[in-house]
Amino acid sequence: MPIKKIELGILFIISVVVIADGISLVNLDRMRAGESGTYVIFLGILLLILAGLYMLKDIPSEWEKQPGGRQVAEAICLLAAYAFVMPYLGYLISTFLVTIAYMVHMSGYRWVPSLAFAIVFSVSTAWFWAWLVVLVPQGFFPWPEV
């Protein structure tokens, strides 16, 4: 499917969802909900009009296939995994794991330097955040405690 059709599809879906939400607010018939909903409907209609213009105008999509797409998908998966495990494992362990995974799997470094870097990086930053009183997830291994 051409990229422009995907772009237009996303824009039309967003417009419809936004307008529907605005209408549901207006229908509540409560003080100020109408005003609030009207603004949302206005934005939805504006997006719909602009998406319509984008469809009609001869503006080609500039998305080009690039060889690094697979790596980006892997990086996103790694980030999602990091966000997923952080509440359970805490900052220190999850950062250690994600750094080592990134360096070995995605950057192609050997295990020993990656391990050394991951230990130094995760321990030093965990200590640094604690020193700055920046709150990071603690998980089951709350070190260093803030």
């Binding site: 990134y102 950057s107 192609g108 990086f121 930053t125």
Partner: peptide, 9 residues
Amino acid sequence: GILAPIVLV
């Protein structure tokens, strides 16, 4: 390879 994990964290 070293920069990216630092920035992402």
